[in-house]
Computed example of a mutant assay.
Amino acid sequence: MDRIKEKMNSLRIEADEASSKVEELQKQIKVLEQENLQKEHEITSLQHKNQQLETELEKAETKAKELKDAADVGGNQLSQNEALQRRLQLLEDEAEEADKNLRETNDKLRQTDVKAGHFERKVSALEVERDNWEAKFEEMAKKFAAVQKELEDFQAEIGNI
């Protein structure tokens, strides 16, 4: 009988957990449906915007073609166009030259950075070497002082004899 009660309690607990899980999943479904609806609205909005932009593009292309036709008709406009094209060519040449100078300057900067890194490493190595020599010097100075003291003690003993 106790087994049956325990089994029933465990089944109730499982049923409660299952109900909770179902509620959670239903909430998730609602959230996903709302997100889906928002995405659909966004798609519709973007499609409308795309249509408007295509219409504007067609208008702009038509206007550009009309202006180009008008420019072809006018001889004065043609000479201006040629002058502007020459100026554009000059500006492009200057831009290419500036770009070339920029690349060269960047290469030189990279080389300088590499050299600076090399010298920094060299300085670090020399500083370590200097520290080692200073440590050796201090050690030798201590040994010298000890030998000097021994010598003085030895001289004092010899002087006493």
Rank of each mutant, 00 (worst) to 15 (best):
Q155E: 09
R3Q: 10
L109D: 06
A146D: 10
Q85E: 13
Q148P: 00
Q47P: 00
D72T: 04
N81R: 01
Q89F: 06
T62F: 02
Q47E: 15
F119N: 07
D16F: 05
E129D: 09
E129W: 02
K59F: 02
Q52S: 11
N9V: 12
D69I: 00
Q47T: 12
K68M: 06
E94C: 05
T55E: 04
D153W: 06
E42I: 05
Q34H: 09
I43V: 15
K59P: 00
M140I: 11
K30I: 11
R110Q: 15
E61M: 05
E24A: 04
E6N: 13
N36A: 08
F144Q: 03
K21P: 00
R130W: 03
T62G: 01
Q155F: 06
N101R: 15
K122M: 03
D107T: 11
L102E: 03
Q89V: 08
E58K: 10
A15Q: 09
L78W: 05
I43M: 09
N101I: 11
L84P: 00
K5P: 00
R87L: 14
E54K: 07
L57I: 05
V73F: 04
E97H: 14
H41Q: 12
M1G: 03
E54Q: 11
N36K: 10
L37S: 14
A70G: 02
E61H: 02
A141P: 01
V22A: 07
V22L: 06
R86T: 09
H41L: 10
A64P: 01
I158G: 01
Q111M: 12
L84R: 14
D72L: 05
E152M: 09
V31G: 03
R121D: 13
R12Q: 07
L151C: 08
L32R: 13
E94P: 00
Q89P: 00
D153I: 06
V22T: 05
Q38D: 11
E17N: 10
D99C: 14
V123P: 01
S45K: 13
E56I: 01
L57P: 00
K5R: 15
I161Q: 01
K68H: 05
Q155I: 10
K49M: 14
T55G: 05
I43Y: 01
H48P: 01
L84A: 13
L91Y: 05
E42D: 12
R87H: 14
V147R: 09
Q34T: 08
G117Y: 03
K68Y: 04
V128P: 01
T112V: 07
D153C: 06
E92R: 12
N81D: 11
E97D: 15
K68C: 02
K136N: 12
T105V: 11
E6A: 11
M1P: 01
E150L: 11
A125I: 08
Q148K: 13
F137D: 14
A141M: 13
E35R: 04
E96V: 15
N106R: 15
S124D: 14
E150V: 08
D99Q: 15
V114E: 11
V128G: 10
H118F: 09
L67H: 01
A71E: 06
A15M: 10
Q77C: 08
A70H: 04
L53N: 02
F119Y: 12
R103P: 00
A156P: 00
N101T: 13
E42T: 07
